[in-house]
């Protein structure tokens, strides 16, 4: 045990704290904290997705709201058809809505994966500033599409009146839904740890550090980066589906560039490239919003100041501050 780094100790602490939280919240009779923690878990998962592209792959995507929103709309559209007993499509074959989370997740993951593949295919032809602007622009394209497409609520968004079902779990109880989200968050963290330590992860990290060297050993950087971008988008899309279920509401604001900024901010606040960075960042972000948002409606002013301070003076985020510089690059 003596060989555990400070970062690992912090990670274990965060894991235990997240598992213990609902029991503490119930004990002190503050069930609202469970809802806050559910938001933490969901945004954390979205951040874990972005962190794979951003931290491990060095792909500065400013358009991850696209995948978050596509996941959310996948959930919203399937659920609203199931509630209204109307099929999504009758010809050439019948597709019906569903309220089963497992199917919704699968659809959300596939849909956001396809969108990530298409956006990645075009935007990964470029790099640097072009990549940032193009991912931003394509996400914005979907945002305007969602606003002007009247079938699913347009600008007003789409309500899901009853939370969807997951096997035998009571998803309407805050506990039940929280542990589903937490389980998926840890699943996402586990997946990125596995990927990062695999051959694929090694190739992805060298794509970030030196593309020429990677091509020299016979691996095409484009394919590696595209694969990472698609997996990243799928995780964020799954988070979007959960977010829709949490709020029982989907709206174009899930696709807006503020959402992309929010996901990116929490990855940065926690620490880019750190396994638990997105979770730590989500905790800080939600706490900040909860505490300052309760005091003043201008809380984003202070968020801006904090973010500016972190970027200018505290690179490495909170985990970097606590655990010191661990990355060698």
């Amino acid at each position: 045990m003596a060989s555990l780094s400070r970062e690992s100790i912090l990670n274990i602490f965060l894991t235990l704290a997240m598992v213990a939280l609902p029991f503490v919240a119930t004990a002190i009779d503050e069930p609202f904290y469970i809802t806050l923690a559910t938001r933490v878990a969901i945004l954390g998962l979205a951040g874990v997705g972005l962190n794979l592209a951003l931290g491990t792959g060095g792909l500065v995507s400013f358009g991850h709201a696209a995948f978050f929103g596509v996941g959310g709309y996948a959930a919203g559209i399937l659920a609203s058809h199931a509630l209204n007993y109307t099929p999504i499509m009758e010809s050439p074959f019948l597709i019906e809505g569903t309220n089963q989370m497992l199917i919704i997740w699968l659809v959300a993951i596939i849909a956001s994966g396809i969108v990530a593949y298409l956006i990645g295919l075009l935007s990964l032809r470029t790099s640097g500033v072009y990549f940032i602007m193009i991912t931003l622009a394509f996400a914005q394209m979907l945002y305007y599409f969602a606003i002007s497409w009247p079938a699913y609520g347009g600008e007003d968004g789409l309500s899901i009146y009853v939370r969807n079902a997951f096997l035998g779990v009571n998803t309407l109880a805050p506990h039940g839904f929280y542990f589903i989200c937490l389980g998926l968050l840890f699943g996402g963290i586990f997946l990125s740890a596995t990927l990062k330590n695999s051959r694929f992860g090694a190739a992805l990290q060298s794509a970030r550090q030196n593309e020429e060297r990677l091509s020299a050993v016979g691996v095409r950087p484009f394919n590696i980066k595209l694969t990472a971008f698609v997996i990243s988008g799928m995780m964020t899309g799954l988070a979007g589906a959960l977010f829709a279920d949490l709020n029982r509401f989907v709206s174009p604001s899930m696709l807006s560039w503020h959402m992309s900024g929010e996901i990116m901010i929490l990855v940065i606040l926690g620490g880019v490239g750190r396994l638990y960075g997105p979770l730590a960042g989500a905790i800080i972000y939600i706490l900040f919003e909860f505490i300052f948002g309760g005091m003043t409606e201008h809380w984003q002013f202070f968020l801006g100041l904090v973010l500016l301070g972190v970027v200018l003076f505290a690179r490495g985020g909170v985990i970097g501050l606590i655990a010191g510089r661990a990355r060698h690059d």
Partner: peptide, 28 residues
């Protein structure tokens, strides 16, 4: 001025922070 030597990610974040500050300041 502090951002010229930084990578694009830092530039994006710092200027995004400026948007939050200026927009909320203006609303105030």
């Amino acid at each position: 001025r502090r951002l010229y030597d930084r990578d694009h990610l830092d530039q994006v974040l710092a200027t995004f922070a400026l948007i939050l500050i200026i927009s909320e300041g203006c609303r105030f």
